[in-house]
Amino acid sequence: MERIPIIKMGPFLLVTIQVDMHDRLVMALQEDLTELVSATGARGVLIDISSLDMVDSYIGRMLGGIASITSLMNAYTVVVGMQPAVAITMVELGISLQGVMTALNVEKGMDLLRATLMISPDQDHGIDREE
């Protein structure tokens, strides 16, 4: 079955959503991410949506769901790279992504996660630093 790849970057996990997502792919991504957060002890998840040409209420719900699930597993989710036209449309549609952190791009998203978790860049390799 088709899967969205998840890349481990130091203490974070990066997902780049590049395809038009259908329901089964979304479900698989939620499962895979949850398992990887558990297996790696990752403290942050970056979801890059710069290739998505729209976010409807279904995808919005999926992003909010991932953020809720990961927060229960002690990890923060940051949605990065939203296109301006997508943001404008989402607001009119009535989706606010409450409780989901956002950043302009992957780099700024990583900065935000580091600041939130108080990790300095040279500590990126040690995931379990709090233990």
Binding site: D53, M54, D56, S57, Y58, A85, I88, T89, M90, E92
Partner: peptide
């Protein structure tokens, strides 16, 4: 365009 495809998707 984005508004139209988003409405279509919904």
């Amino acid at each position: 365009q984005t508004k139209l495809i988003t409405a279509t998707s919904e």
